[in-house]
């Protein structure tokens, strides 16, 4: 079980790997599309990598609800619970 801080750090690492964005730019209130400029293909890559890293399943229909980094952290945290 990872804490929210650990999930955020892991997610930031995945985002950095995919987009080159600095990990510290990946903050809870940032929108994936508006703030981080992540397109839908990169978003799917991030989702799949997050599933593997955190051992969770993020259904396709759920991905559109993950608007901010915080949404993703909370989803992963709940899925792990």
């Amino acid at each position: 079980m990872a804490s929210n801080e650990e999930i955020l750090a892991g997610l930031a690492e995945i985002v950095n790997e995919e987009t080159g964005l600095a990990p510290e730019a990946v903050e809870m209130d940032k929108s994936f599309t508006e703030d981080l400029d992540i397109d839908s293909i990169s978003m799917m890559t991030i989702v799949v990598n997050a599933e593997e890293k955190f051992g969770v399943r993020i259904p396709d229909e759920e991905v559109k609800n993950l608007k901010t980094v915080g949404d993703a952290v909370n989803f992963i945290s709940n899925a792990q619970a």
């Binding site: 293909i41 799917m44 890559t45 799949v48 593997e52």
Partner: peptide, 10 residues
């Protein structure tokens, strides 16, 4: 199939 990357086709 879930692990096949979305950038595969392009």
């Amino acid at each position: 199939p879930r692990r096949v990357l979305p950038m595969t086709v392009p």
